[in-house]
Design a protein around this nucleic acid. Structure first.
Length: 900
RNA sequence: GGCGCGGUGGUGGAACGGUAGACACGCAAGUCUCAAAAACUUGUGAGUGUAAAAGCUCAUGAGAGUUCGAAUCUCUCCCGCGCCACCA
């Protein structure tokens, strides 16, 4: 007897390890998650594509699971959810790993892609892998090259110079992370700042269009191009507004699949750190008006403000300061021209052209002075950007020249200092020590005069000027593992051209990344020789990255040493020419991958415009906050370029952005191998199952928060799932079918849960959605009998979180059932949300003194509620002998007696 | 220095301006057990009070304000975290 019982128990125990892989296989075989557009309501659910680093870690789970839960909910709610994924497969880590271990970057990368794809399967997501992109494959980067060429054609990709970290020994540009204490990490040589030729994208041209409009309280982020947007099929984007009738009676909502439309509007306006949704409140008031939720975009304030700051538009003026005893002048940018009367000296950056002209001997000057200046400038140039940032003490040198202050008419001295940046404004400032902290420090240190400003001075010769903090995007990397730049450098073509127009200036200067010439350079310089830049014809794409290349560091781009690959016939003149040996920044790859996803095999263009029309813009873009300034800005930039190229007709690629936090190690620190606090998802899955991990990641904290992993808490989640599992027995052992025996309380609990879970999932509030499920489970567990309707509804609500467990139970209790993931999301009925009696708080002078139960059909009548409240024992003693001055009644919530 | 986000029990966190601490974790006691684990039940902000209850007081970083009523709105300050940073 005992043994038999034991057997039964074991049989009915929850073993996630057994059921999870089984269902993953079945879903895969039956194509359950293949995308189809049968409902005509698309929903593009996008997560930032991962880098194939080797193994899936908890961070990947955290990035993908809540979005998957959201996607599954949307799917059950009747949307055609498009949820693809790919790999951001080019980049430095592969090259470094390869150098370290002697494996080829491609082999290393593709092996990781394979491993991680397998690991993704254990997560149980509904990702449709038919739609993917692996950026290191020619069929993807071919289109990188295509886009690059189109940009080149439009003058958006250009060759220019920028100050960079430069190692004189290795003759190469170094990234900041490759400088150790001012020295080259490879050879130990001093690193200097040098103007180096490289490829740029002219993102500054789009600065104004990339600025998010700042909306007042009532606004949202308006879509810059509403008309274009409304030319899209609108069936997916028009939602009825929130109205009482829809909330109170689901039969008025025959579309039925999306019971939370009301809360959709709510959700878009509720996020504390999000811009409020335009029109939401107005349409509630208006009743019948329509919300087109695509007429605005909803991005976190953090991103909007961050990007706007980064772009850094500032309006000011240019003022000429005439150089004494000459016909030349120095131009200055300032946002405070009204302080010009307090300008007691002028400072130019060491890279300023006036300094060069001094050093070139264009100005009469004492010999010793010239040498001093030369020394100062050289020293300043030696400083790396890092050092400039760290060392804030002012240094500088007097030029011995003066300029005339156009307001006061006084001669003021010109100084050189590296606290003035060559890359911003004109590289020269008027120093107003009485108004500016930095100028004051400088003046104090070098004993320069400090004069008060009236703040009323306005130089007559000031010209309005807008400056941006944003700089053009440097996209060339002297690396192997990236997209080859599809440009051919031809000496012969250059010679022909230069003979035609012999008067050539030096190539455009981009001091500090700031473009000075609009055009950029129309020729390149390689090893000191000029070449014409000939774009590779589109039909010759892709320029494949050769496999057998010595990619170990040698001081020049690895591709530059592959003579065979490098030498090529010039497509223009047919002569001997060279390929470009540099590769594209990987941020180029990731700036448009979500367009490629929709038609990954399309071979006529980067993407199929028809498909993009169907599926974009992205409805929600999940990712980390580290991409606030880089990736998401670049992706917006590409989108605007695509629009200008006529490839698309919208302005923003994603309607909504959701940024998640970080899962820390159990010790509260960021997970890292060296700290030994890494939680391996594989291990946890082995112990608790994927469903438990999924649920825990949703439950542990708000999605945007950062908190440590808790071993205890996941155990609690496991317990919860076990209890769900064991309810099966309760259902089975019930003799009578109690379908019609649900009480008002039962219904109320059920429909509250339906509403809460749906609303929360719409609003990305995963943690409280799980809590609502727990609350309802606690209620169900305490009951003697459970109706099948209740259990099935519960499973449906749980299905997005725990797809395996719910599928297993679903198909066990319904022998002929299809997948639970094909079920419709339950629809809550407002009349069931209401209980027989409503609890109302009774307060006296704002302090809670009692709670009373009022029959729900009486809560409209204040006099009734008041009477009941006054009858209450514990209220009586506070009101007795007092004069009731005022009674505040908030329907169904609180009644407050103000006594005195 | 600028911008952004936060500060609620022992912990993670809930709270349309309306019962602060939902839901969990942890902890304590109990049931079961030879025992432990697991599971289940109960309790759990702090103080005060009581045989036990009822009850009362204080509590959302500090202080003020608005309000019948404030974790929530306003102002001042303090402290954390993130990003940017000599940007004129």
């Amino acid at each position: 007897m005992k043994i038999k019982n034991l057997k039964l128990k074991i049989k009915s125990r929850y073993f996630p390890q057994e059921i999870e892989s089984k269902w993953q296989e079945i879903w895969d075989k039956t194509g359950l998650y293949k995308f189809s557009s049968k409902h005509g309501k698309k929903y593009y659910n996008l997560v930032e594509l991962p880098y194939p680093s080797g193994d899936l870690h908890i961070g990947h789970w955290f990035s993908f699971v809540p979005p998957d839960v959201h996607a599954r909910y949307k799917r059950m709610a009747g949307f055609d959810v498009f949820f693809p994924n790919g790999f951001d497969a080019f980049g430095l880590p592969a090259e470094n790993a390869a150098i370290k271990r002697g494996v080829h970057p491609k082999d290393w990368t593709m092996k990781n892609v394979a491993t991680m794809t397998k690991q993704f399967a254990t997560m149980g997501t509904m990702i449709d892998w038919d739609y993917t992109a692996i950026t290191c494959l020619p069929e993807y980067y071919k289109w990188n090259q295509w886009i690059f060429l189109k940009m080149f054609e439009r003058g958006l990709a250009y060759r220019g110079k920028a100050l960079s970290n430069w190692c004189e020994v290795d003759k190469t540009v170094l990234a900041n992370e490759h400088i150790e204490a001012g020295k080259c990490w490879r050879c130990g040589a001093e690193v200097i700042q040098k103007e180096v030729e490289q490829w740029f994208l002219r993102i500054t041209e789009y600065a104004d269009r990339l600025i998010w409009p700042q909306m007042e309280e009532t606004g949202g982020q308006p879509h810059a191009d509403r008309d274009a947007r409304s030319s899209f099929p609108q069936n997916q984007s028009q939602t009825s507004s929130l109205s009482e009738s829809q909330l109170s009676n689901s039969e008025d909502n025959p579309s039925g699949q999306e019971p939370s439309f009301g809360s959709l509007a709510d959700g878009l306006s509720s996020g504390k750190d999000h811009q409020p949704a335009r029109n939401a409140s107005a349409s509630v008031a208006g009743g019948s008006s329509i919300i087109n939720h695509k007429s605005f975009v909803d991005w976190p304030k953090q991103v909007i403000d961050g990007q706007n700051n980064w772009i850094g538009r500032s309006e000011g003026v240019l003022i000429q300061f005439p150089i004494s005893n000459s016909q030349f002048s120095i131009e200055v940018f300032t946002t405070h021209p009204e302080t010009a009367d307090g300008a007691t000296f002028l400072v130019v950056a060491p890279e300023h052209e006036f300094v060069s002209s001094l050093l070139n001997g264009k100005w009469q000057m004492a010999n010793g002075k010239l040498k001093e200046i030369q020394e100062y400038v050289e020293q300043a140039k030696k400083k790396t950007e890092m050092e400039r940032k760290e060392d804030r003490t002012k240094s500088g040198i007097f030029t011995s020249k003066y300029v005339k202050n156009p307001v006061t008419g006084k001669d003021i001295p010109v100084w050189i200092s590296d606290y003035v940046l060559a890359g911003y404004g004109t590289g020269a400032i008027m120093a107003v020590p009485s108004a500016d902290q930095r100028d004051r420090e400088f003046a104090t240190k070098f004993q320069l005069p400090i004069e008060k400003t009236s703040f009323k001075a306005k130089p007559e010769n000031a010209i309005a000027k807008v400056n941006y903090h944003l700089r053009d995007w440097s996209i060339s990397r002297q690396r192997y593992w990236g997209t080859p730049i599809p440009v051919i450098h031809c000496r012969e073509c250059w010679e022909v051209k230069s003979q035609k127009s012999p008067a050539r200036n030096a190539s455009a200067s981009v001091a500090g990344g700031k473009v000075k010439s609009k055009q950029g350079s129309d020729y390149s310089i390689i090893d000191g020789k000029e070449y014409a830049m000939i774009p590779v014809p589109l039909e010759d794409l892709p320029i494949e990255l050769p496999y057998n290349v010595d990619y170990t560091p040698k001081g020049k781009p690895p591709l530059a040493s592959d003579e065979e690959w490098l030498s090529v016939k010039c497509p223009k003149c047919g002569g001997k020419a060279k390929r470009d040996a540099e590769t594209l920044d990987t941020f180029f790859d990731s700036a448009w991958y979500f367009y490629r996803y929709v038609s990954p095999n399309y071979d006529k263009a980067p993407f199929d415009q028809e498909k993009v029309k169907q599926l974009l813009p992205v409805d929600v873009y999940f990712g980390g906050s580290e991409h606030t300034l880089g990736h998401t800005l670049y992706a917006r930039f590409f989108t605007k370029v695509f629009k200008d190229m006529g490839l698309i007709d919208f302005d923003e690629f994603a309607d909504k952005r959701v940024q998640h936090g970080v899962v820390l190690g159990p010790d509260g620190n960021r997970m890292s191998k060296s700290k030994g606090n890494v939680v391996s998802p594989d291990d946890v899955v082995k112990e608790y199952g994927a469903d438990a991990v999924r649920l825990y990641l949703c439950f542990m904290m708000p999605y945007e928060a950062t908190a440590p992993w808790s071993v205890g808490a996941i155990n609690g989640i496991y317990r919860f799932l076990k209890r769900v599992w064991e309810l099966q027995d309760k259902i089975k052992n019930q003799k009578s079918k109690i379908k019609d025996e649900l009480s008002r309380e039962d219904y109320s609990q059920m429909h509250k849960a339906i509403k809460k879970v749906g609303d929360d999932l719409n609003n990305f509030q995963f943690n409280t959605a799980v809590a609502a499920l727990m609350t309802w489970l606690n209620f169900l567990s305490a009951k003697d009998k459970i109706a099948k309707e209740e259990y099935e509804t519960f499973l449906k609500l749980l299905a997005p979180f725990a797809p395996h467990l719910t599928e297993e139970i679903w198909q066990t209790i319904n022998s002929s059932a299809n997948s639970i993931h094909l079920e419709n999301w339950p629809v809550y009925q407002a009349n069931h949300l209401v209980e027989e009696n409503t609890q109302i708080v009774v307060a006296v002078n704002g302090k809670t003194r009692a709670t009373i139960l009022v029959p729900t059909d009486k809560i409209e009548e204040q006099s009734e509620v008041e009477k009941l409240a006054k009858d209450n024992q514990s209220v009586v003693k506070y009101i007795n002998n007092m004069q009731v001055k005022k009674v505040v009644y908030v329907k169904a919530r609180i009644i407050n007696f103000v006594v005195g």
